[in-house]
Design a protein around this nucleic acid. Structure first.
Lengths: 195, 195
DNA sequence: ATTTGAATTATTGGTTCATTTGTTCAAATA
DNA sequence: TATTTGAACAAATGAACCAATAATTCAAAT
């Protein structure tokens, strides 16, 4: 098993424990035991506990983003892409209890401000998805010619906020309804020919 | 001076100190001194330190909301009302350094979830402003017939989020640009005949 | 190149205690 | 009667300490 594979295994084990007990209450000894090694050996793979935690989360977030990207890629119509993006990302989290648990225990993962965002590169990728859809829509003449940069940031902020409302604070179905209404409203504002 | 007037005076003095030193570092003795009375006498007017704090904030929030309501009332056209609502509330806070300071020191005043909202009745009032505009727009045939309840909640959430981004976390001008783009986008989604 | 046990360092949680601050109240005042 | 006060009491806070636990390093082993 390659070093990279071993890392993967470590990250998955770590995420499981972090999701169950939270950052502070999980010890590196426990994580090491979970993958069948001593804690000192863990330091051969990661720089420390904090690093282990962040990398594990980074790993999970990337998987999420890639999964949403794949769902979008299946659609051709730009309006369908928009709808898929809005819903697939929500659905993914609904299905991933472990990641939800992490997010609830550490709400700061989803920050409202880029400056203090520990996972900025990953969120940049998510914003890329939004931006590409906006650009495609404009190029195809389906969307009105809006300010792509700021609108992308706006949509991403709204999206993050509703993730927080729905899964971190547990407003559940109520927040989902709002999100759906909002997505529809925004899509109507985006489209040149309102349906 | 009536008891109600004395209370007003106390609230203003308290807010000033709370804004400067925060809740914990402000003592009731200091507040009492500020209005020229002993701390024990303060208990004739308020139930305790917490009550003093919350009432002072409540007072300031009401003033804010009423000020926005007044600005909206000046306009007749529903689209103008919408724009005014979106901007006047932001402008008010830009001008009120004291309230901004309170908000920064106690970010939980602006919660993303109604359940834990200590000032829910006041925010209800703010949502009322949004709802009335939506209803007017629909009745006049200017807005499409959206789900008023959920759209109101959606818009209020977005509004609160940008207040936090702009003033609590200090993203300043960048968040403002996003907000403007978002407001324009939403308004376009709302209107029956896009301009 | 990987793993380990033992040693070292840093954090954490609990305890005490002195000090400050919040709260109550019977008596005074206007 | 409505308001104010000083003194007493109760609760919260922060500093200083200690013991226990957990994180990290590293020389030696595989």
């Amino acid at each position: 098993m390659s070093k990279a594979d071993k890392k993967q295994e470590i990250f998955r084990a770590a995420l499981k424990l972090f999701a169950r007990y939270g950052y502070k209450k999980t010890t590196v000894a426990e994580v090491a035991a979970q993958v069948g090694m001593t804690k000192s050996n863990l330091y051969f793979y990661v720089a420390g506990k904090r690093d282990l935690y962040e990398q594990s989360i980074r790993h999970a977030l990337k998987h999420w983003r890639d999964s949403v990207a794949a769902a979008i890629a299946e659609k051709n119509d730009v309006v369908e892409k928009f709808k898929t993006m809005a819903l697939a990302s929500f659905q993914y989290l609904a299905d991933d209890e472990q990641l939800r648990s992490i997010l609830i225990m550490d709400p700061a993962i989803f920050t409202l401000t880029p400056a203090e965002d520990r996972f900025h590169e990953i969120n940049q990728g998510a914003m890329r998805l939004i931006k590409d859809i906006l650009v495609q829509g404009i190029n195809e003449g389906r969307f009105t010619e809006i300010d792509v940069e700021h609108t992308t940031e706006f949509l991403f902020s709204v999206y993050i906020m509703f993730l927080i409302k729905t899964y971190v604070k547990s407003e559940g179905i109520s927040a989902l309804r709002m999100y759906e209404q909002g997505a529809a409203l925004v899509l109507r504002g985006l489209c040149r020919n309102p349906s």
